[in-house]
Design a protein around this nucleic acid. Structure first.
Lengths: 197, 197
DNA sequence: CACAATAATGCATTCTGTGCAATATTTGCT
DNA sequence: AGCAAATATTGCACAGAATGCATTATTGTG
């Protein structure tokens, strides 16, 4: 029964994206304040009840589906003998490569965050999930004892990445491939600060 | 009219703490799932309506009041000519000194976060507010152009601090004064990772 | 085509959160 | 103390969020 009906899955993903698109465009045009789940459902052409079948809550619809590392990447990372941090960045490269990035959607999100700053914490909550995955990867190589250190590193990397994402969303000339490069540059800036200690 | 009725203010702070205590203890004993604002209000001896006069929402009651840098510290920081990062840590030292830390409450929070991990994002949202304040401080010295860099640095520092807080909450032998010292040590660990780049 | 699995929907219900008006309490002042 | 203004608490009504459950529609399979 595993890996069957991909047609259904594609429809599901499509509907999910349509709901997110509806939520973002309504939030941008009418304001997030006063945006109701009924409005989103109507705009997406579904019932309110179906909206809640796709997303746990209104905020999740704004954020959209979450990405995660595939098994091959995890396996590769575990076996690799290179230095930890570059390997984590390489894993991110693979992740961004597999998940097809939608610059238009990212732009909408960025504009919404500027217009409705109260949503920023929601996105940081979502970013935390990526950070947790990075931390899990790091722990594969450092051992559970280093969980706190892994968390700290993963937070820094994921925030640098989020930073870079905003840059990428607003720069049509920037290639997706260079995202992790810019993220690395951001991390070097951070290291520069920490050299003051 | 400024700086008047401190009696009223103290009562207000006391009620606020009592509500948070009620929320935390109920969440720990009965579980956060199924905890209603009416239950919290009843436990705290106030009406549900009054609960919402103190906190914008249920989650805010769990987190409690937010701290912020006082004007003297901001002024000191702006004028100081020392290196940026140590000065930021010094500002944190002053902040922790002025806000009287309640280890018992911190312990309750830490236990609740272990029991109900779905609340972790809430706390990261709250941590973000501290991070924003740190970033504002840094921008005073770096200029608005360096906002992105300041954000990155502030995130790293605030996460290292949050880390340290959990350690402090569970170690009765650890003095509040040493919190920032341990935070600095955490930041050095992070720098060690970044040296791999 | 028929049947099983899955998805969409309507409906009732509980809880969150807000606005507003009424009531109670506190504070400053004489 | 006693009065008036400011502030806090409360009850009530209401709109929206989110869930459970039963029903209906759609879709994939043999």
């Amino acid at each position: 029964m595993a890996l069957k009906s991909t047609l259904r899955d594609r429809r599901r993903l499509q509907t999910s994206r349509e709901i997110q698109r509806a939520a973002l465009s309504l939030a941008l045009s009418q304001g997030y304040e006063g945006l109701t789940t009924e409005m989103i459902a109507a705009e997406a052409g579904i019932s309110q009840r179906t909206f809640f079948n796709y997303f746990l809550n209104k905020e999740a619809a704004i954020i959209g589906e979450t990405v995660s590392f595939d098994e091959e990447t995890v396996a590769w990372f575990r076996e690799s003998s290179g230095p930890l941090v570059p390997d984590l960045l390489q894993a991110l490269r693979r992740l961004l490569c597999s998940s097809d990035l939608d610059r238009g959607m990212s732009q909408l999100i960025d504009r919404l965050l500027n217009k409705a700053p109260e949503l920023v914490p929601i996105f940081y909550g979502s970013l935390k999930r990526l950070s947790d995955q990075l931390s899990d990867l790091a722990v594969l190589r450092l051992g559970q004892d280093a969980r706190a250190d892994a968390d700290l590193l993963a937070e820094a990397i994921s925030h640098a990445l989020a930073d870079t994402f905003r840059i990428w969303a607003n720069d049509d000339a920037m290639a997706p491939d260079s995202i992790v490069d810019v993220t690395t540059a951001r991390l070097l800036v951070l290291r520069g600060f920490l050299d003051q200690l």
